[in-house]
Design a protein around this nucleic acid. Structure first.
Lengths: 280, 280
DNA sequence: GGGAGCATTCGGGAAAGCCTTATGCTGGTT
DNA sequence: AACCAGCATAAGGCTTTCCCGAATGCTCCC
Protein backbone atom coordinates (compact mmCIF):
# COMPACT_ATOMS: atom_id res chain seq x y z
CA UNK A 1 0.00 0.00 0.00
CA UNK A 2 1.52 3.26 -1.12
CA UNK A 3 -0.82 5.34 0.92
CA UNK A 4 0.09 6.26 4.43
CA UNK A 5 -2.49 7.71 6.71
CA UNK A 6 -2.01 7.33 10.41
CA UNK A 7 -4.48 8.07 13.17
CA UNK A 8 -2.06 10.48 14.79
CA UNK A 9 -1.93 12.54 11.64
CA UNK A 10 -5.71 12.58 11.44
CA UNK A 11 -5.91 13.92 14.97
CA UNK A 12 -3.61 16.75 13.94
CA UNK A 13 -5.59 17.40 10.81
CA UNK A 14 -8.89 17.58 12.64
CA UNK A 15 -7.45 19.94 15.21
CA UNK A 16 -6.14 22.26 12.52
CA UNK A 17 -9.27 22.09 10.41
CA UNK A 18 -11.62 22.85 13.25
CA UNK A 19 -9.54 25.55 14.85
CA UNK A 20 -8.54 27.06 11.53
CA UNK A 21 -4.96 27.54 12.61
CA UNK A 22 -1.89 25.44 13.22
CA UNK A 23 -1.03 27.44 16.29
CA UNK A 24 -4.37 26.92 17.97
CA UNK A 25 -4.37 23.25 17.02
CA UNK A 26 -0.93 22.81 18.54
CA UNK A 27 -2.21 24.29 21.77
CA UNK A 28 -5.13 21.90 21.82
CA UNK A 29 -2.89 18.93 21.17
CA UNK A 30 -0.13 19.96 23.52
CA UNK A 31 2.40 20.01 20.70
CA UNK A 32 4.60 22.61 19.09
CA UNK A 33 3.21 24.31 15.98
CA UNK A 34 6.09 22.94 13.95
CA UNK A 35 5.08 19.39 14.85
CA UNK A 36 1.49 19.88 13.83
CA UNK A 37 2.53 21.56 10.64
CA UNK A 38 4.66 18.55 9.82
CA UNK A 39 1.86 16.11 10.65
CA UNK A 40 -0.39 17.87 8.19
CA UNK A 41 2.32 17.96 5.56
CA UNK A 42 2.97 14.24 5.93
CA UNK A 43 -0.72 13.47 5.77
CA UNK A 44 -1.04 15.47 2.59
CA UNK A 45 1.97 13.70 1.15
CA UNK A 46 0.58 10.34 2.17
CA UNK A 47 -2.77 11.00 0.54
CA UNK A 48 -1.28 12.82 -2.41
CA UNK A 49 -3.77 15.62 -1.95
CA UNK A 50 -3.59 19.21 -0.70
CA UNK A 51 -5.87 19.50 2.32
CA UNK A 52 -5.39 23.20 3.06
CA UNK A 53 -4.74 26.43 1.29
CA UNK A 54 -2.12 28.31 3.23
CA UNK A 55 -2.95 31.94 3.77
CA UNK A 56 -1.14 34.50 5.84
CA UNK A 57 -4.07 34.51 8.26
CA UNK A 58 -4.44 30.77 8.75
CA UNK A 59 -5.38 27.57 7.01
CA UNK A 60 -8.39 27.23 4.75
CA UNK A 61 -9.67 23.79 3.83
CA UNK A 62 -9.52 22.75 0.22
CA UNK A 63 -12.28 20.68 -1.29
CA UNK A 64 -10.56 17.37 -0.48
CA UNK A 65 -9.79 18.78 2.95
CA UNK A 66 -13.47 19.40 3.52
CA UNK A 67 -14.20 15.87 2.41
CA UNK A 68 -11.68 14.54 4.89
CA UNK A 69 -12.90 16.67 7.77
CA UNK A 70 -16.40 15.35 7.30
CA UNK A 71 -15.11 11.80 7.75
CA UNK A 72 -12.02 12.02 9.93
CA UNK A 73 -13.73 12.52 13.26
CA UNK A 74 -15.96 9.56 12.54
CA UNK A 75 -12.93 7.41 11.85
CA UNK A 76 -11.21 8.56 15.03
CA UNK A 77 -14.37 7.80 16.96
CA UNK A 78 -14.45 4.37 15.38
CA UNK A 79 -10.86 3.78 16.41
CA UNK A 80 -11.65 4.87 19.93
CA UNK A 81 -14.59 2.54 20.07
CA UNK A 82 -12.36 -0.33 19.00
CA UNK A 83 -9.82 0.64 21.62
CA UNK A 84 -12.45 0.68 24.33
CA UNK A 85 -13.85 -2.66 23.25
CA UNK A 86 -10.41 -4.23 23.48
CA UNK A 87 -9.08 -2.64 26.64
CA UNK A 88 -12.37 -2.71 28.48
CA UNK A 89 -11.92 0.97 29.20
CA UNK A 90 -15.02 2.81 30.18
CA UNK A 91 -16.32 5.35 27.80
CA UNK A 92 -15.68 8.89 28.82
CA UNK A 93 -18.11 11.54 27.70
CA UNK A 94 -16.96 15.12 27.97
CA UNK A 95 -19.80 17.53 28.47
CA UNK A 96 -19.53 21.27 28.82
CA UNK A 97 -22.11 23.67 30.12
CA UNK A 98 -22.68 27.39 30.27
CA UNK A 99 -21.22 28.72 33.47
CA UNK A 100 -24.66 30.03 34.33
CA UNK A 101 -26.10 26.53 34.15
CA UNK A 102 -23.30 24.58 35.76
CA UNK A 103 -24.45 25.07 39.32
CA UNK A 104 -28.21 25.05 38.91
CA UNK A 105 -29.06 22.78 36.00
CA UNK A 106 -26.12 20.56 35.21
CA UNK A 107 -26.24 18.28 38.26
CA UNK A 108 -29.72 16.99 37.41
CA UNK A 109 -28.69 16.29 33.83
CA UNK A 110 -25.54 14.46 34.86
CA UNK A 111 -27.40 12.48 37.47
CA UNK A 112 -29.95 11.36 34.91
CA UNK A 113 -27.16 10.32 32.56
CA UNK A 114 -25.43 8.37 35.31
CA UNK A 115 -28.66 6.54 36.08
CA UNK A 116 -29.41 5.59 32.52
CA UNK A 117 -25.93 4.81 31.36
CA UNK A 118 -23.93 3.68 34.37
CA UNK A 119 -21.29 2.39 31.95
CA UNK A 120 -20.13 5.92 31.22
CA UNK A 121 -17.64 8.22 32.84
CA UNK A 122 -18.84 11.75 32.51
CA UNK A 123 -16.55 14.70 32.79
CA UNK A 124 -17.84 18.21 33.01
CA UNK A 125 -16.50 21.67 32.45
CA UNK A 126 -18.16 25.03 32.30
CA UNK A 127 -17.28 27.79 29.87
CA UNK A 128 -18.73 30.63 27.88
CA UNK A 129 -21.04 29.79 25.02
CA UNK A 130 -18.57 30.65 22.29
CA UNK A 131 -15.88 28.59 23.94
CA UNK A 132 -18.31 25.69 24.29
CA UNK A 133 -19.34 25.77 20.67
CA UNK A 134 -15.73 25.93 19.54
CA UNK A 135 -14.79 23.03 21.78
CA UNK A 136 -17.65 20.92 20.50
CA UNK A 137 -16.84 21.74 16.90
CA UNK A 138 -13.19 20.93 17.52
CA UNK A 139 -13.92 17.64 19.21
CA UNK A 140 -12.53 18.70 22.58
CA UNK A 141 -16.00 18.31 24.03
CA UNK A 142 -18.52 15.65 23.06
CA UNK A 143 -21.49 17.88 23.77
CA UNK A 144 -22.46 21.14 25.39
CA UNK A 145 -25.44 22.16 27.45
CA UNK A 146 -26.75 25.64 26.79
CA UNK A 147 -29.88 27.73 26.59
CA UNK A 148 -31.63 28.19 23.29
CA UNK A 149 -34.92 28.83 21.60
CA UNK A 150 -36.86 27.39 18.71
CA UNK A 151 -36.26 24.37 16.53
CA UNK A 152 -32.71 25.04 15.47
CA UNK A 153 -29.47 25.58 17.30
CA UNK A 154 -28.91 29.32 17.51
CA UNK A 155 -32.57 30.21 17.58
CA UNK A 156 -31.83 32.39 20.57
CA UNK A 157 -29.69 34.56 18.31
CA UNK A 158 -26.11 33.40 18.47
CA UNK A 159 -23.81 32.21 15.71
CA UNK A 160 -22.99 28.53 15.75
CA UNK A 161 -20.88 26.20 13.60
CA UNK A 162 -22.73 24.23 10.94
CA UNK A 163 -23.49 20.55 11.32
CA UNK A 164 -24.80 20.48 14.87
CA UNK A 165 -27.51 18.23 16.17
CA UNK A 166 -29.37 18.91 19.37
CA UNK A 167 -31.82 17.51 21.82
CA UNK A 168 -33.70 19.43 24.49
CA UNK A 169 -33.39 17.98 27.96
CA UNK A 170 -35.42 20.48 29.93
CA UNK A 171 -36.87 23.96 30.14
CA UNK A 172 -35.94 27.17 31.86
CA UNK A 173 -38.87 29.44 32.57
CA UNK A 174 -38.34 33.18 32.37
CA UNK A 175 -40.13 35.69 34.54
CA UNK A 176 -40.24 39.43 34.27
CA UNK A 177 -40.03 40.63 37.83
CA UNK A 178 -39.61 43.76 39.90
CA UNK A 179 -39.78 44.75 43.56
CA UNK A 180 -43.43 45.09 44.70
CA UNK A 181 -43.16 48.82 45.24
CA UNK A 182 -40.14 49.48 43.06
CA UNK A 183 -39.76 50.92 39.54
CA UNK A 184 -40.85 48.90 36.49
CA UNK A 185 -38.26 50.63 34.36
CA UNK A 186 -35.63 50.51 33.15
CA UNK A 187 -35.14 46.87 32.17
CA UNK A 188 -32.11 45.59 34.00
CA UNK A 189 -30.11 43.35 31.70
CA UNK A 190 -26.94 41.36 31.77
CA UNK A 191 -24.08 41.95 29.31
CA UNK A 192 -24.67 41.26 25.64
CA UNK A 193 -23.86 37.67 24.86
CA UNK A 194 -25.50 36.30 27.96
CA UNK A 195 -28.32 33.94 27.05
CA UNK A 196 -30.84 35.73 29.20
CA UNK A 197 -29.87 39.00 27.61
CA UNK A 198 -30.39 37.49 24.17
CA UNK A 199 -33.83 36.38 25.28
CA UNK A 200 -34.60 39.86 26.61
CA UNK A 201 -33.47 41.42 23.35
CA UNK A 202 -35.78 39.11 21.39
CA UNK A 203 -38.72 39.72 23.71
CA UNK A 204 -38.55 43.47 24.10
CA UNK A 205 -36.70 44.72 21.07
CA UNK A 206 -34.59 47.85 21.29
CA UNK A 207 -37.29 50.33 22.38
CA UNK A 208 -37.54 49.51 26.05
CA UNK A 209 -35.18 51.59 28.18
CA UNK A 210 -32.56 49.32 29.72
CA UNK A 211 -29.56 49.37 31.96
CA UNK A 212 -26.75 46.91 31.42
CA UNK A 213 -25.33 45.24 34.51
CA UNK A 214 -22.45 42.85 34.93
CA UNK A 215 -24.46 39.70 35.60
CA UNK A 216 -27.85 38.14 36.11
CA UNK A 217 -27.23 38.08 39.82
CA UNK A 218 -26.58 41.78 39.84
CA UNK A 219 -29.75 42.42 37.85
CA UNK A 220 -31.74 40.45 40.39
CA UNK A 221 -30.21 42.39 43.24
CA UNK A 222 -30.95 45.72 41.61
CA UNK A 223 -34.50 44.75 40.88
CA UNK A 224 -34.98 43.66 44.50
CA UNK A 225 -33.86 47.11 45.50
CA UNK A 226 -36.50 48.64 43.30
CA UNK A 227 -34.24 49.95 40.56
CA UNK A 228 -36.14 48.41 37.66
CA UNK A 229 -37.51 45.22 36.15
CA UNK A 230 -35.45 42.15 35.33
CA UNK A 231 -35.98 39.11 33.18
CA UNK A 232 -34.81 36.25 35.32
CA UNK A 233 -34.55 32.51 34.75
CA UNK A 234 -36.24 30.25 37.24
CA UNK A 235 -32.97 29.08 38.72
CA UNK A 236 -31.91 32.66 39.49
CA UNK A 237 -35.12 33.62 41.23
CA UNK A 238 -34.57 31.64 44.36
CA UNK A 239 -37.33 32.27 46.87
CA UNK A 240 -37.76 35.91 46.00
CA UNK A 241 -41.26 35.34 44.66
CA UNK A 242 -42.37 33.30 47.65
CA UNK A 243 -40.91 35.75 50.10
CA UNK A 244 -42.45 38.65 48.25
CA UNK A 245 -39.13 40.34 47.58
CA UNK A 246 -40.03 40.29 43.90
CA UNK A 247 -43.34 40.09 42.08
CA UNK A 248 -44.05 38.82 38.63
CA UNK A 249 -45.12 41.41 36.09
CA UNK A 250 -47.37 39.09 34.14
CA UNK A 251 -45.44 38.39 30.97
CA UNK A 252 -46.00 35.12 29.22
CA UNK A 253 -42.43 34.70 28.13
CA UNK A 254 -41.62 31.54 26.22
CA UNK A 255 -39.54 29.08 28.14
CA UNK A 256 -35.96 28.64 27.02
CA UNK A 257 -34.82 25.17 26.06
CA UNK A 258 -32.12 23.48 28.09
CA UNK A 259 -30.40 22.18 25.02
CA UNK A 260 -27.65 19.66 24.49
CA UNK A 261 -25.76 20.16 21.22
CA UNK A 262 -23.11 18.06 19.45
CA UNK A 263 -21.59 17.54 16.05
CA UNK A 264 -23.72 15.48 13.75
CA UNK A 265 -20.84 13.57 12.19
CA UNK A 266 -19.68 12.09 15.46
CA UNK A 267 -20.13 8.39 15.86
CA UNK A 268 -23.72 7.15 16.12
CA UNK A 269 -23.21 5.68 19.56
CA UNK A 270 -22.56 9.15 20.92
CA UNK A 271 -25.93 10.14 19.60
CA UNK A 272 -27.48 7.26 21.51
CA UNK A 273 -25.81 8.38 24.69
CA UNK A 274 -27.08 11.90 24.33
CA UNK A 275 -30.56 10.92 23.36
CA UNK A 276 -30.65 8.89 26.56
CA UNK A 277 -30.90 12.27 28.20
CA UNK A 278 -33.83 13.55 26.22
CA UNK A 279 -36.76 11.33 27.05
CA UNK A 280 -37.88 12.34 30.50
CA UNK B 1 -4.22 10.57 24.84
CA UNK B 2 -2.07 7.97 26.51
CA UNK B 3 -3.15 5.26 24.18
CA UNK B 4 -1.32 4.74 20.96
CA UNK B 5 -2.84 2.65 18.25
CA UNK B 6 -1.78 3.26 14.70
CA UNK B 7 -3.31 1.87 11.56
CA UNK B 8 0.01 0.38 10.53
CA UNK B 9 0.15 -1.64 13.72
CA UNK B 10 -3.40 -2.84 13.16
CA UNK B 11 -2.46 -4.06 9.70
CA UNK B 12 0.34 -6.07 11.26
CA UNK B 13 -1.91 -7.41 13.95
CA UNK B 14 -4.56 -8.53 11.50
CA UNK B 15 -1.97 -10.24 9.35
CA UNK B 16 -0.59 -12.14 12.33
CA UNK B 17 -3.98 -13.00 13.77
CA UNK B 18 -5.36 -14.35 10.54
CA UNK B 19 -2.27 -16.25 9.49
CA UNK B 20 -1.54 -17.46 13.00
CA UNK B 21 2.15 -16.77 12.67
CA UNK B 22 4.48 -13.81 12.61
CA UNK B 23 6.51 -15.35 9.84
CA UNK B 24 3.57 -15.83 7.51
CA UNK B 25 2.25 -12.37 8.32
CA UNK B 26 5.62 -10.87 7.50
CA UNK B 27 5.53 -12.56 4.12
CA UNK B 28 2.09 -11.18 3.42
CA UNK B 29 3.14 -7.70 4.42
CA UNK B 30 6.47 -7.74 2.68
CA UNK B 31 8.29 -7.12 5.94
CA UNK B 32 10.82 -8.98 8.04
CA UNK B 33 9.42 -11.13 10.85
CA UNK B 34 11.25 -9.06 13.42
CA UNK B 35 9.46 -5.93 12.22
CA UNK B 36 6.04 -7.49 12.48
CA UNK B 37 6.87 -8.89 15.88
CA UNK B 38 7.77 -5.41 17.02
CA UNK B 39 4.59 -3.91 15.56
CA UNK B 40 2.55 -6.34 17.58
CA UNK B 41 4.56 -5.70 20.70
CA UNK B 42 4.12 -1.94 20.35
CA UNK B 43 0.41 -2.32 19.73
CA UNK B 44 0.08 -4.42 22.86
CA UNK B 45 2.07 -1.84 24.82
CA UNK B 46 -0.05 0.95 23.42
CA UNK B 47 -3.29 -0.75 24.36
CA UNK B 48 -1.94 -2.11 27.62
CA UNK B 49 -3.30 -5.54 26.77
CA UNK B 50 -1.79 -8.86 25.70
CA UNK B 51 -3.20 -9.75 22.30
CA UNK B 52 -1.46 -13.08 21.79
CA UNK B 53 -0.20 -16.02 23.74
CA UNK B 54 3.20 -16.91 22.43
CA UNK B 55 3.70 -20.60 21.83
CA UNK B 56 6.59 -22.36 20.24
CA UNK B 57 4.36 -23.20 17.27
CA UNK B 58 2.92 -19.78 16.64
CA UNK B 59 0.69 -17.12 18.07
CA UNK B 60 -2.67 -17.80 19.65
CA UNK B 61 -5.12 -14.96 20.18
CA UNK B 62 -6.03 -14.04 23.73
CA UNK B 63 -9.54 -12.96 24.59
CA UNK B 64 -8.79 -9.25 24.03
CA UNK B 65 -6.96 -10.25 20.87
CA UNK B 66 -10.07 -11.97 19.61
CA UNK B 67 -12.07 -8.86 20.42
CA UNK B 68 -9.64 -6.75 18.45
CA UNK B 69 -9.55 -9.06 15.46
CA UNK B 70 -13.31 -8.90 15.18
CA UNK B 71 -13.12 -5.12 14.87
CA UNK B 72 -9.76 -4.29 13.35
CA UNK B 73 -10.53 -5.19 9.76
CA UNK B 74 -13.66 -3.10 9.93
CA UNK B 75 -11.65 -0.13 11.14
CA UNK B 76 -9.06 -0.61 8.40
CA UNK B 77 -11.85 -0.80 5.86
CA UNK B 78 -13.31 2.39 7.27
CA UNK B 79 -9.94 4.09 6.97
CA UNK B 80 -9.65 2.92 3.40
CA UNK B 81 -13.07 4.24 2.61
CA UNK B 82 -12.11 7.62 4.01
CA UNK B 83 -8.94 7.57 1.97
CA UNK B 84 -10.83 6.81 -1.21
CA UNK B 85 -13.39 9.51 -0.54
CA UNK B 86 -10.63 12.07 -0.12
CA UNK B 87 -8.29 11.10 -2.90
CA UNK B 88 -11.00 10.19 -5.37
CA UNK B 89 -9.27 6.87 -5.88
CA UNK B 90 -11.36 4.20 -7.44
CA UNK B 91 -12.27 1.32 -5.28
CA UNK B 92 -10.34 -1.81 -6.04
CA UNK B 93 -12.01 -5.13 -5.36
CA UNK B 94 -9.76 -8.16 -5.26
CA UNK B 95 -11.55 -11.31 -6.25
CA UNK B 96 -10.06 -14.76 -6.44
CA UNK B 97 -11.46 -17.80 -8.15
CA UNK B 98 -10.80 -21.50 -8.29
CA UNK B 99 -8.38 -22.19 -11.07
CA UNK B 100 -10.98 -24.49 -12.58
CA UNK B 101 -13.47 -21.62 -12.81
CA UNK B 102 -11.15 -18.84 -13.87
CA UNK B 103 -11.34 -19.55 -17.57
CA UNK B 104 -14.91 -20.72 -17.93
CA UNK B 105 -17.00 -18.92 -15.34
CA UNK B 106 -15.13 -15.93 -14.03
CA UNK B 107 -15.33 -13.70 -17.12
CA UNK B 108 -19.12 -13.59 -17.05
CA UNK B 109 -19.11 -12.70 -13.35
CA UNK B 110 -16.57 -9.96 -13.79
CA UNK B 111 -18.38 -8.57 -16.79
CA UNK B 112 -21.60 -8.37 -14.83
CA UNK B 113 -19.81 -6.60 -12.00
CA UNK B 114 -18.26 -4.11 -14.40
CA UNK B 115 -21.68 -3.36 -15.87
CA UNK B 116 -23.38 -2.81 -12.57
CA UNK B 117 -20.62 -1.03 -10.74
CA UNK B 118 -18.51 0.76 -13.32
CA UNK B 119 -16.95 2.73 -10.47
CA UNK B 120 -14.92 -0.29 -9.40
CA UNK B 121 -11.58 -1.64 -10.40
CA UNK B 122 -11.65 -5.39 -10.20
CA UNK B 123 -8.54 -7.47 -9.93
CA UNK B 124 -8.61 -11.20 -10.29
CA UNK B 125 -6.40 -14.07 -9.36
CA UNK B 126 -6.93 -17.78 -9.45
CA UNK B 127 -5.75 -20.22 -6.81
CA UNK B 128 -6.60 -23.44 -5.06
CA UNK B 129 -9.58 -23.48 -2.76
CA UNK B 130 -7.57 -23.58 0.45
CA UNK B 131 -5.38 -20.75 -0.69
CA UNK B 132 -8.47 -18.74 -1.60
CA UNK B 133 -10.13 -19.26 1.74
CA UNK B 134 -6.95 -18.33 3.58
CA UNK B 135 -6.54 -15.20 1.49
CA UNK B 136 -10.13 -14.13 2.09
CA UNK B 137 -9.85 -14.79 5.81
CA UNK B 138 -6.57 -12.87 5.91
CA UNK B 139 -7.92 -9.88 4.02
CA UNK B 140 -5.64 -10.36 1.03
CA UNK B 141 -8.69 -11.01 -1.12
CA UNK B 142 -12.04 -9.32 -0.76
CA UNK B 143 -13.96 -12.33 -1.98
CA UNK B 144 -13.52 -15.66 -3.66
CA UNK B 145 -15.53 -17.50 -6.25
CA UNK B 146 -15.82 -21.24 -5.76
CA UNK B 147 -18.11 -24.20 -6.13
CA UNK B 148 -20.27 -25.30 -3.24
CA UNK B 149 -23.47 -26.97 -2.25
CA UNK B 150 -26.31 -26.29 0.15
CA UNK B 151 -27.12 -23.31 2.30
CA UNK B 152 -23.83 -22.90 4.09
CA UNK B 153 -20.29 -22.33 2.97
CA UNK B 154 -18.55 -25.69 2.98
CA UNK B 155 -21.66 -27.71 2.20
CA UNK B 156 -19.67 -29.43 -0.48
CA UNK B 157 -17.48 -30.91 2.23
CA UNK B 158 -14.48 -28.68 2.76
CA UNK B 159 -13.29 -26.92 5.88
CA UNK B 160 -13.67 -23.17 5.90
CA UNK B 161 -12.89 -20.38 8.34
CA UNK B 162 -15.74 -19.17 10.51
CA UNK B 163 -17.55 -15.91 9.87
CA UNK B 164 -18.04 -16.12 6.15
CA UNK B 165 -20.99 -14.77 4.24
CA UNK B 166 -21.85 -15.91 0.75
CA UNK B 167 -24.04 -15.26 -2.19
CA UNK B 168 -24.66 -17.56 -5.11
CA UNK B 169 -24.13 -15.98 -8.49
CA UNK B 170 -24.83 -18.92 -10.76
CA UNK B 171 -25.06 -22.66 -11.14
CA UNK B 172 -22.85 -25.36 -12.53
CA UNK B 173 -24.73 -28.42 -13.74
CA UNK B 174 -23.09 -31.80 -13.30
CA UNK B 175 -23.54 -34.68 -15.71
CA UNK B 176 -22.53 -38.28 -15.32
CA UNK B 177 -21.24 -39.25 -18.74
CA UNK B 178 -19.48 -42.03 -20.58
CA UNK B 179 -18.57 -42.93 -24.15
CA UNK B 180 -21.65 -44.35 -25.99
CA UNK B 181 -20.10 -47.77 -26.35
CA UNK B 182 -17.54 -47.55 -23.57
CA UNK B 183 -17.43 -48.89 -20.03
CA UNK B 184 -19.69 -47.45 -17.31
CA UNK B 185 -17.15 -48.33 -14.66
CA UNK B 186 -15.00 -47.42 -12.95
CA UNK B 187 -15.90 -43.85 -12.01
CA UNK B 188 -13.10 -41.64 -13.25
CA UNK B 189 -12.42 -38.97 -10.65
CA UNK B 190 -10.08 -36.07 -10.18
CA UNK B 191 -7.73 -35.84 -7.17
CA UNK B 192 -9.24 -35.47 -3.73
CA UNK B 193 -9.77 -31.86 -2.88
CA UNK B 194 -11.09 -30.95 -6.32
CA UNK B 195 -14.62 -29.61 -6.07
CA UNK B 196 -15.99 -32.04 -8.64
CA UNK B 197 -14.38 -34.89 -6.76
CA UNK B 198 -16.02 -33.72 -3.55
CA UNK B 199 -19.34 -33.70 -5.36
CA UNK B 200 -18.70 -37.20 -6.71
CA UNK B 201 -17.84 -38.43 -3.23
CA UNK B 202 -21.08 -37.02 -1.86
CA UNK B 203 -23.16 -38.43 -4.71
CA UNK B 204 -21.76 -41.91 -4.92
CA UNK B 205 -20.26 -42.63 -1.54
CA UNK B 206 -17.27 -44.93 -1.22
CA UNK B 207 -18.76 -48.11 -2.74
CA UNK B 208 -18.53 -47.28 -6.41
CA UNK B 209 -15.25 -48.44 -7.94
CA UNK B 210 -13.23 -45.48 -8.99
CA UNK B 211 -9.97 -44.52 -10.60
CA UNK B 212 -8.26 -41.31 -9.60
CA UNK B 213 -6.80 -39.20 -12.39
CA UNK B 214 -4.79 -36.02 -12.30
CA UNK B 215 -7.51 -33.61 -13.47
CA UNK B 216 -11.04 -33.17 -14.72
CA UNK B 217 -9.75 -32.78 -18.23
CA UNK B 218 -8.00 -36.12 -17.99
CA UNK B 219 -11.14 -37.75 -16.63
CA UNK B 220 -13.08 -36.43 -19.58
CA UNK B 221 -10.49 -37.71 -22.00
CA UNK B 222 -10.45 -41.17 -20.44
CA UNK B 223 -14.22 -41.36 -20.47
CA UNK B 224 -14.26 -40.37 -24.17
CA UNK B 225 -11.95 -43.25 -24.79
CA UNK B 226 -14.37 -45.61 -23.10
CA UNK B 227 -12.41 -46.24 -19.92
CA UNK B 228 -15.26 -45.45 -17.52
CA UNK B 229 -17.81 -42.90 -16.45
CA UNK B 230 -17.03 -39.36 -15.33
CA UNK B 231 -18.91 -36.71 -13.42
CA UNK B 232 -18.28 -33.53 -15.38
CA UNK B 233 -19.31 -29.92 -14.88
CA UNK B 234 -21.09 -28.21 -17.76
CA UNK B 235 -18.12 -26.05 -18.58
CA UNK B 236 -15.86 -29.09 -18.99
CA UNK B 237 -18.18 -30.94 -21.29
CA UNK B 238 -17.65 -28.80 -24.33
CA UNK B 239 -19.51 -30.15 -27.32
CA UNK B 240 -18.96 -33.77 -26.43
CA UNK B 241 -22.66 -34.37 -25.83
CA UNK B 242 -23.74 -32.67 -29.05
CA UNK B 243 -21.11 -34.49 -31.07
CA UNK B 244 -22.02 -37.78 -29.49
CA UNK B 245 -18.53 -38.38 -28.13
CA UNK B 246 -20.11 -38.72 -24.69
CA UNK B 247 -23.63 -39.64 -23.58
CA UNK B 248 -25.38 -38.74 -20.36
CA UNK B 249 -26.10 -41.64 -18.01
CA UNK B 250 -29.29 -40.19 -16.65
CA UNK B 251 -28.39 -39.02 -13.20
CA UNK B 252 -30.26 -36.13 -11.70
CA UNK B 253 -27.29 -34.67 -9.92
CA UNK B 254 -27.90 -31.49 -8.01
CA UNK B 255 -26.34 -28.42 -9.58
CA UNK B 256 -23.39 -26.93 -7.76
CA UNK B 257 -23.60 -23.32 -6.71
CA UNK B 258 -21.21 -20.81 -8.19
CA UNK B 259 -20.64 -19.14 -4.89
CA UNK B 260 -18.98 -15.91 -3.88
CA UNK B 261 -17.74 -15.90 -0.27
CA UNK B 262 -16.29 -13.16 1.91
CA UNK B 263 -15.73 -12.32 5.53
CA UNK B 264 -18.81 -11.08 7.29
CA UNK B 265 -17.06 -8.43 9.34
CA UNK B 266 -15.78 -6.57 6.33
CA UNK B 267 -17.27 -3.17 5.71
CA UNK B 268 -20.93 -3.11 4.68
CA UNK B 269 -20.21 -1.44 1.38
CA UNK B 270 -18.26 -4.49 0.29
CA UNK B 271 -21.35 -6.51 0.93
CA UNK B 272 -23.29 -4.19 -1.33
CA UNK B 273 -20.74 -4.61 -4.07
CA UNK B 274 -20.90 -8.37 -3.86
CA UNK B 275 -24.63 -8.54 -3.65
CA UNK B 276 -24.70 -6.52 -6.85
CA UNK B 277 -23.56 -9.75 -8.42
CA UNK B 278 -26.28 -11.95 -7.07
CA UNK B 279 -29.52 -10.71 -8.56
CA UNK B 280 -29.58 -11.92 -12.10
C1' DG C 1 6.72 51.49 7.39
C1' DG C 2 6.60 48.76 11.53
C1' DG C 3 4.60 45.23 14.07
C1' DA C 4 1.27 41.40 15.18
C1' DG C 5 0.01 37.02 13.89
C1' DC C 6 0.55 33.37 11.07
C1' DA C 7 2.88 29.02 8.86
C1' DT C 8 6.99 27.19 7.76
C1' DT C 9 12.03 25.97 7.71
C1' DC C 10 16.13 24.54 10.16
C1' DG C 11 19.00 21.85 13.16
C1' DG C 12 19.21 18.48 16.47
C1' DG C 13 17.85 14.92 19.72
C1' DA C 14 14.72 11.06 20.85
C1' DA C 15 11.78 7.48 19.36
C1' DA C 16 9.98 4.30 16.03
C1' DG C 17 10.38 1.36 12.06
C1' DC C 18 12.94 -1.58 9.54
C1' DC C 19 16.64 -4.77 8.36
C1' DT C 20 19.91 -8.87 9.04
C1' DT C 21 21.83 -11.92 12.11
C1' DA C 22 21.85 -14.46 16.31
C1' DT C 23 19.48 -16.88 20.20
C1' DG C 24 16.28 -19.69 22.51
C1' DC C 25 12.33 -22.44 22.55
C1' DT C 26 9.50 -26.78 21.40
C1' DG C 27 7.95 -30.79 18.95
C1' DG C 28 8.72 -34.17 15.78
C1' DT C 29 12.56 -37.29 13.48
C1' DT C 30 16.12 -40.34 12.95
C1' DA D 1 18.77 -39.80 22.79
C1' DA D 2 20.41 -36.43 19.72
C1' DC D 3 19.09 -33.61 16.14
C1' DC D 4 16.73 -30.59 13.20
C1' DA D 5 12.85 -27.68 11.53
C1' DG D 6 10.06 -24.00 12.53
C1' DC D 7 8.90 -20.54 15.39
C1' DA D 8 9.23 -15.86 18.02
C1' DT D 9 12.20 -12.70 19.69
C1' DA D 10 16.61 -10.16 21.16
C1' DA D 11 20.69 -7.49 19.40
C1' DG D 12 22.90 -4.24 16.74
C1' DG D 13 22.75 -0.82 13.24
C1' DC D 14 20.68 2.09 9.88
C1' DT D 15 16.88 5.22 8.21
C1' DT D 16 12.77 7.68 8.91
C1' DT D 17 9.53 9.89 11.76
C1' DC D 18 8.41 12.81 15.51
C1' DC D 19 8.99 16.51 18.27
C1' DC D 20 11.19 20.56 19.98
C1' DG D 21 12.93 25.61 20.18
C1' DA D 22 14.61 29.16 17.41
C1' DA D 23 14.81 31.55 13.17
C1' DT D 24 12.54 32.96 8.84
C1' DG D 25 9.27 34.74 5.74
C1' DC D 26 4.76 36.11 4.71
C1' DT D 27 0.55 39.32 4.88
C1' DC D 28 -2.56 42.30 6.83
C1' DC D 29 -3.47 46.18 9.71
C1' DC D 30 -2.54 50.18 12.13
Amino acid sequence: MLVRMELRQLKGFVAVATSGSVTAAANDLGLAPASVSEQVRRLEAGLGVALFERTARGMRLTEPGTALLARAQGLLDHADEVRRAVTGARRRVRIGALEMLAAAKLPAVIRRLAERRPDLDVSVESRTRQSLLDAVAGGRLDAALLLDLGDRVGGLGFARPAGMDHVDVGEVRLSLVAAPDGDREPLLVSPSGCSIRLAADQLFGAEVPRRELSSITTAREWSRQGLGAALLPDFALGSDLDSGALVELGLDAPALALRLVWMREREPSLRDVLYALSAS
